[in-house]
Amino acid sequence: MPPSTTPTARRRRLGAELRKLRERAGITATEAARLLGGNQARISNIEAGRYGVSAERVRTLSCHYHCPDEALVNALAAMTGDRKRGWWEEYREILSAELLDLAELEHHGTALRTAHVSGLPGLLQTTDHAREVFRQVVPALTPPEIEHHLSFRIKRQAVIFREDPAPYRAVVHEAALHMRFGGPAVARQQLDHLLAMSERDHVTIRVVPFRAGGYPGTGQPVHYVHGSVPQLDTVQLDQAHGMALLDAEAHLHKYRQVLDRMESLALDAAESRDLVDAIARGL
């Protein structure tokens, strides 16, 4: 079977984690191939996500790599089972690969955390609010591009509406609640939507009030997707030059601290709802 030219984010992550285990064990790709009875090119393709690998081979490689973490090995083996392409693949030739990777990560995530200062989380945006956000993108999107981005964002929200939703914790700065994308009517509808979402058992929305003072980082949105084990977590950042997906241990540790710090500054859930409601009534 020829290698895949568009490996999924999940397959690439599996390959990257196997490479980390191999390198920590001090084993070369050639030596690993010999252990599997193959060649070095096959190991390279597996580690790049271009070739699929069975759960049995994942366990065999982990054993050769002397990995003592049974939970991690089990999690890696479980990543081999889902071979179906997700709904996001219909956007493959339309939107960036990073956006598709994000949707796939969220789909498989066990929990989601996010912190926003000047905007609202995409998973909590109404259709009208999101459309206005996309109209402000620089360089400007064409009307068809806006609608593609909009439909993709709304479909991503299925992760918090499905029958088995992942727990979702959002921290939003009070500044974001005063932004009036689309005018007062759209802003009021958006705030009412936040209130409704905050009533869901698996959704927690907390607000950092202006009076809290300073906050960590540069104010860029941080979106943290938990994997089945901490080593498989991923951080998504929105930056001026585009989206970045990070999974290095140092990055994961840093942004967990950022999110913890933002939560420590935030009002509790009930106080946050009261503030959102007060701002909505003032529109």
Rank of each mutant, 00 (worst) to 15 (best):
P3K: 03
S4M: 14
T8D: 04
R11T: 02
E17Y: 02
R19L: 12
R24V: 15
I27N: 10
A29R: 07
T30Y: 15
E31Q: 15
A33Q: 05
R34V: 04
E47D: 10
A48R: 11
R59W: 01
T60L: 11
L61G: 03
C63Q: 15
H64C: 11
H64N: 04
H66A: 11
H66F: 08
C67T: 08
D69A: 11
E70G: 14
L72H: 08
L76G: 04
D82M: 01
R85V: 10
W87V: 07
E90W: 06
I94L: 11
I94Y: 02
S96D: 08
A97V: 12
L100D: 00
A103H: 05
L105V: 15
H108A: 09
G109M: 12
L112N: 04
T114N: 07
S118D: 10
L120G: 06
P121L: 04
P121C: 03
Q125C: 04
T126E: 05
T127D: 13
E132P: 00
V133T: 06
P139E: 11
P139A: 13
E145I: 00
H149F: 02
L150I: 07
K155G: 08
V159S: 05
I160N: 04
I160C: 03
E163C: 12
D164T: 13
D164V: 09
P165Q: 15
Y168H: 12
V172N: 02
A175D: 10
A176M: 12
L177G: 00
G183W: 07
A185N: 10
L191H: 03
M197A: 13
H202Y: 13
V203T: 14
G214P: 09
G217K: 04
G219T: 09
Q220Y: 08
P221I: 01
H226T: 12
D233K: 02
V235H: 05
A244Y: 15
A244S: 14
E249W: 10
A250R: 05
Y255F: 13
R256T: 13
M262G: 06
M262L: 13
D268R: 05
R273E: 08
L275W: 06
V276Q: 02
I279A: 01
R281L: 01
R281Q: 01
